[in-house]
Simulated assay, not measured.
Amino acid sequence: MKNSLVTACLMSGLMFVGAASYAASPGTQPPLNAANASQQQDPVPATQKRLAELKQKLNLKPAQQAAWVTFSSDLAAQATMRAQSKEKMKGALGPDYQNLPTPEKMEKMVIIMRSNADFLSKTASITKAFYDGLSTEQKTIFDLFAKTSWNNRMKEQMR
């Protein structure tokens, strides 16, 4: 579990750094249209949409509703903070990122990766607290939903 968490953190950081490097390059921003709109979407509504889909699939019992409210509001808050952090990181990279010496680029990458790891760790804690209250059947549904959702988001980021 710990090894896969480290791998996920590293992959997340590398993908963000790659995207940030590309975004910082002049003339690399594609025009906003239907084809790339999903990449530009606000993460908060996207998170809320996935949470609504998950809630419907889980068929929560009345006793689980309070845990769901805590879980969903905490994840929505995480999405908001993550979006703000990404904007701050983009600003920290600056327009001259491509011209920085390699050691300075690497230092910036370390900061981004640590931030990604911190967000992933908080999200994992929020998820575990909710997940522990699910039935075995609900855990299976949750796992399948998370796997599909994760794969779809990874595919979108790779485009």
Results as ranks from 00 to 15, higher is better:
Pro103Gln: 04
Leu14Trp: 06
Val110Arg: 07
Gln39Glu: 10
Thr7Trp: 10
Lys105Thr: 00
Tyr131Pro: 01
Ser121Thr: 15
Trp68Phe: 05
Ala19Cys: 12
Arg159Glu: 11
Ala20Gln: 14
Ser115Trp: 07
Thr47Asn: 01
Lys88Ala: 13
Lys108Thr: 05
Ala52Cys: 06
Asn151Gln: 14
Ser4Asp: 06
Thr80Pro: 04
Lys128Cys: 10
Thr102Arg: 11
Ala46Asp: 01
Leu5Thr: 09
Ser125Val: 10
Gln157Asn: 14
Met81Trp: 10
Ala35Phe: 15
Leu51Thr: 04
Ala19Glu: 10
Ala52Trp: 04
Met113Phe: 05
Leu51Ala: 02
Ser85Gly: 13
Thr7Ser: 12
Pro95Trp: 12
Glu107Gly: 14
Asn99Cys: 12
Ala46Trp: 02
Phe16Ile: 15
Ala19Trp: 14
Ser125Phe: 05
Thr70Ala: 15
Ala76Trp: 06
Arg50Ala: 14
Leu93Asp: 00
Lys108Ser: 00
Arg114Met: 15
Thr70Glu: 10
Ile126Gln: 10
Ser38Lys: 10
Thr123Cys: 05
Ala79Glu: 00
Val44Ser: 04
Lys155Thr: 14
Asp143Arg: 08
Ser25Val: 08
Lys122Arg: 13
Ser149Gly: 03
Ala83Val: 04
Lys88Leu: 13
Glu87Ser: 15
Leu60Cys: 01
Val44Tyr: 02
Asp132His: 08
Trp68Val: 04
Leu32Trp: 03
Leu93Trp: 11
Leu75Thr: 02
Gln39Trp: 09
Glu107Arg: 14
Leu60Gly: 07
Ala146Gln: 09
Glu87Tyr: 13
Gln29Trp: 13
Lys128Val: 10
Pro26Cys: 01
Thr80Met: 09
Met15Lys: 08
Val44Phe: 03
Lys86Ser: 14
Val17Glu: 06
Gly27Trp: 02
Lys2Cys: 13
Thr7Gly: 11
Thr140Gln: 15
Pro30Trp: 00
Met1Thr: 15
Phe119Ser: 00
Ser38Tyr: 13
Leu144Thr: 15
Asn116Ile: 04
Val44Arg: 05
Ser121Arg: 12
Ala83Trp: 06
Lys61His: 12
Tyr131Val: 00
Met81Tyr: 15
Asn36Tyr: 01
Lys55Pro: 00
Arg82Asp: 09
Ser38Cys: 11
Phe16Glu: 14
Phe71Val: 01
Ala19Asp: 09
Pro45Asp: 00
Val17Tyr: 07
Met106Thr: 12
Ala23Ser: 07
Trp68Ser: 02
Met154Gln: 13
Ile141His: 01
Cys9Asp: 11
Pro95Asp: 12
Val6Phe: 05
Ala77Trp: 03
Ser73Tyr: 02
Phe145Cys: 06
Arg153Phe: 08
Ala19His: 12
Lys128Met: 14
Ala117His: 09
Thr123Ile: 08
Gly91Phe: 07
Ser25Leu: 14
Phe142Thr: 01
Ser21Pro: 02
Ser38His: 09
Ser85Cys: 08
Ser149Gln: 03
Lys155Val: 11
Thr28Tyr: 07
Asn116Pro: 05
Lys108Glu: 03
Pro45Tyr: 03
Gln39Tyr: 10
Ser73Leu: 00
Ala8Ser: 05
Lys57Met: 15
Ala124Phe: 12
Asn33Val: 02
Lys122Leu: 07
Thr123Leu: 04
Ala117Lys: 06
Ala124Leu: 11
Gly94Val: 04
Val44Gly: 05
Gln157His: 10
Ala24Asp: 04
Met106Gln: 11
Lys105Ser: 04
Pro101Leu: 12
